[in-house]
Design a protein around this nucleic acid. Structure first.
Lengths: 147, 147
DNA sequence: CAATAGTCGACTAACTCAATCGACTTAGTG
DNA sequence: CACTAAGTCGATTGAGTTAGTCGACTATTG
């Protein structure tokens, strides 16, 4: 039940972009440094997110990436689906890529896998980047006086 | 967020063994046929489940595998952990294999991953093979007059 | 002791993952 | 207009994992 690093990096990058939403575009380099993601790898990830419509970019000096929609309108499930495909543990319970299985009707496990898929989807879909950015800002300011 | 085929096969095999609990041991061959799992692959899986203490076996003619505890006392989470490792999407929120991450305290995403982990764990831990066997029997008898 | 069935370790082909690279295009600056 | 900074794109790669196979071995039963 692992998330790929690509999915994780993509989420972190989107979060970073959400933290700087409505400022000027962020360079790949800066996201890479802030979130500790290999730059050439991040390139690919951002490109993929752009092609999927979540990001826009500008070339040249002072170019960079920025969100194409406000962070409140993007949730984690969408991003994970772009990078890793369906959220479902197995295809027979996937909503976005359902595949039929011959044992379906007599399978005592299918209901369980479905429950898992739905729980994961529900949690990730309600998690917007606006909310995550807020949590992040809170954690960072709270941390100043503390460890 | 995929489950490996090994994890899926293991669950199916455990379910099959639960359906025949308190009868004589099941041959690898029969489980393989009933659940449509490649026999040599299933061998490995059953062996792994045996080593982890969930199954016992008998060699020789009329040998086979059987559960070492009643199905009500085995849940899906345990089986998946044996085959696939931790349920957590990433290590920093794993209960069974926690790994520290430098960004931990200022990471706005960690809470989300934790939520996902907990939801998955909760669902899989409450799913015992007794209950799954019951569901399966119900589905199969219901199916007789129906499609 | 022959047949059956689980045991064990090694092996492999295919695939995926995580990343890297180089050449190219576009945009701004002096 | 040349230079440079930045994103674009496709190809490639090395390591690791997955899904599965194989063959020799051991234990049990009739």
């Amino acid at each position: 039940m692992r998330l790929s690093t690509k999915g994780e990096y993509a989420s972190r990058a989107m979060l970073e972009l959400s933290l700087h939403h409505e400022e000027k575009p962020l360079h790949i380099r800066d996201i890479s440094k802030a979130q500790d993601i290999p730059q050439r790898f991040l390139e690919q990830i951002l490109l993929q997110l752009k092609r999927a419509g979540y990001l826009r970019s500008r070339k040249g000096p002072d170019g960079g990436y920025y969100l194409s929609r406000p962070p409140a309108e993007i949730n984690v499930a969408e991003v994970i689906r772009v990078m890793d495909g369906p959220l479902a543990p197995i295809d027979c319970v996937s909503v976005t890529a359902h595949e039929v299985c011959p044992h379906e009707s007599s399978c005592g496990l299918r209901g369980l896998w479905k429950e898992v898929r739905d729980a994961v989807a529900q949690i990730m879909e309600k998690a917007t980047f606006e909310e995550l950015a807020e949590r992040t800002r809170a954690a960072r300011s709270g941390r100043r006086r503390g460890s």
